[in-house]
Design a protein around this nucleic acid. Structure first.
Lengths: 244, 244, 244, 244
DNA sequence: AATGAATGAGCGTTCATTCAT
DNA sequence: GATGAATGAACGCTCATTCAT
């Protein structure tokens, strides 16, 4: 019988604590903000101990990224497995994406910070592949749904427009929107006090623009999305503080 | 007669050269990548000379940002002053935004890097205001066109959707799309080899989704945009290497 | 059983070594002469190691001052506790002061250098208070003895002359004399080859001038001071190379 | 006929202005406080111009010292030429010394700062000789008076005590006292609000202690000194703000 | 496995001095 | 003689990483 000794457990737990704290530090001070010294101090361990878990600073940062992207991929997968017509399943992905940034804003911010900084040179090809793989899974999931939509005749893409092109549009919109929200308070200054409903609307209008059935005018997507929340992300939703 | 001595000229030129080189350094190594020491060395001047131009590292970075944002604002203003119906003027803004990222990809990348890093703490409130002001001008220009569209009855926004909400959508889409392109090669791996036309399509479909007249199906926006390029951005277009 | 490991001991010792060396550097080159870089090099450690002991250059300099002033205060206290008539106790203080500058000439010099340079701006108020406190303790000790002398009727101060005024005189004389000796070789050039006996004489004459009993003519203070040396500062005296 | 052209005059004046300003800078920030850059800026000239007057920073500092010491020597000479009995002439020197520190506190402070810092290494032997010469003249003047006192039988020095020894005592007392006043506010904290009369008293008491005639008890030195002020330093006294 | 002292390359910045104009 | 841009050594300090204990 293999029980985990308390000692072993502590070590495992510490890894999470390291990442948790590291994320806060990156969040508040960027790449600079992550200091191995203060990280160790605040964790109550010695600098050397950190190096038993990660062989260098960049590894920690990479780990943050992997954690974040895995989390999102999991949510995407759950959303994609929702048994409904393609457009609703796409809405489910939208719900997943939104819940992700709203429940884990730190993850999202840190992801952006890390991506913009160039740690990549110092990392191994395989690591990069792992991260990219995660990203591609997310993209692939969405692409699958779009292809379903096309296959089922719910949408007909114009000449020269691929499924991936539409996926790119969805990705752009969410990435851009959440990024703008996270980076500046420009949205509030624009007078948009509830940006998330606005984002949903914009996405749906784009799909409408492609003629994807049923159109927004034909179906109550707001209601549909609330149902998705209930069916798939009840637990996550419960943790959401602000109004949907 | 006041001619500028060669010496003076060299000094003036150097300021550009500093920024130019600094941008490359930030580009390839983030905030870290900009080292005053190597900057000076590669410029062929001494460290002290740099300080005759900028009083600290942050000033240089800020100057990069100001340069970038001013450049874009200028292009937006030129686009906005295009005498056409709102939807075409919106397309003109799209052309401006696209030309900007394509002609000055380094500017765009550095802008993103700088914004995500937290140099802001070390800068004065007024500097931040200046940068934000630039951003708000861009947003304001677009909002003006949207309002024109509404005023002229070319688009009717649904209950609960403001002009700004739509602006936010356009901004999200472009920001996100260019960001994805710049940050990773995911787009190519998605099989999208001409991302820019794809972006244009996605944007137009969104506007179509809002019912903004004339719809894509009713007008050849591709042709309209090429005309915009000719009329407003001929010079810029000439410098564009890749196909439109 | 808790022994101190050799490693730990080395660290503790190093702190003294740092101060020792730092003092020599300040001595020979003033505030400038103390370079963290050369300090580390000459110590045979790295720059970083210095910073494990002192968090900045000023801290080192302050430590020098505290060390010096504490040393003197201790000697003053031992002198003041000598059980004798006030004038002899005053002589004991004189012995302490003289022994201090003669045994630790570097301490004295560095004290002067540091005080004259304006590091004070960069130090905290509390630090300054600590240093001043040390000084005030020394002054207070002397003032106590003077008050004893007055109380016991050994000296009657003229109208308008306070005990403190006399303390000020004693302090001035020693401070000035040692300072002149330390700063230049003017004393030797004046033909004074044994300045210390001269100082003692001058001080005693001043006390005689105030009519403090017993007068120099009535008592052999030279002999009394030798006794003080024996009784209170035997150990220190043994280390004195030059003749008393 | 050789008039001084306005241009030449400006250059001569500037030298004073440089020293004047340099003194203030040293005063408020020690050796560090003197920055050639800000010196030039505040003077309204270029850095290079400073170098037409002084070949390096140390030269400026040395010039400050020479200026100061010359000023004092002049006052000492005037005091020494006072036609009176030795003890009164000695008092005249005291007046000179006191007026000097009180009228030119900046000179005195800077003198101390400069002396404690080690610029000396970087200066030529001849410069040092010049400064030392000035000092020796001052000492010599006082020694002459003491010798007069001995010669005229007003004071009989004990066996083993030279005239110079007494000069050393006078010098110590004044140097120390003014130094303490200038360096800290310890004097005020001691409760001595009029330190200068206290210093005069202490000096006279020392001379009394040596039995120098007439004793303080036999002559009103306060009155004598006021007469000296009138006769020799009337002009200087007029500029003294605080009470004598 | 944990420690934390030691390292040392690297940082941004200052400033006395030089010298072409 | 005056300028001020250019210089570059030197500064105090940080911090990711190593390694003996």
């Amino acid at each position: 019988m293999s029980t985990i000794s308390p000692k072993k457990q502590e070590i495992i737990d510490r890894e999470s604590r390291i990442l948790e704290l590291a994320r806060q530090m990156v969040l508040s001070g960027g790449y600079h903000g992550l200091g191995l010294d203060s990280l160790a101090t605040e964790l109550g361990v010695s600098r050397g101990t950190i190096y038993n878990h990660f062989k260098c600073k960049e590894e920690i940062i990479l780990a943050l990224l992997v954690e974040t992207m895995g989390k999102r991929r999991d949510m995407f997968q759950r959303a994609a497995s929702y048994r409904e017509i393609p457009r609703v399943r796409l809405a489910a992905i939208g719900v997943a994406a939104e819940l992700f940034v709203r429940l884990y804003p730190d993850h999202f911010r840190v992801e952006q910070i890390v991506k913009s900084d160039s740690i990549w040179d110092k990392t191994t090809e395989e690591r990069r592949a792992l991260v990219k793989g995660c990203q591609m899974q997310c993209v692939g999931i969405v692409a699958g749904i779009v292809r379903d939509g096309v296959a089922q005749g719910h949408v007909t893409l114009p000449e020269g427009t691929s499924c991936e092109s539409l996926v790119f549009g969805l990705w752009s919109m969410t990435e851009g929107a959440y990024s703008i929200i996270a980076t500046s308070d420009a949205v509030a200054e624009l007078g948009i006090h509830e940006p998330f409903p606005a984002i949903r609307t914009n996405i749906h209008r784009m799909l409408d623009g492609f003629g994807w059935l049923p159109l927004s005018s034909e179906m109550d997507f707001a209601a549909a999305m609330e149902k998705i929340v209930e069916d798939v992300f009840a637990k996550e939703f419960a943790r959401l503080k602000q109004p949907w």
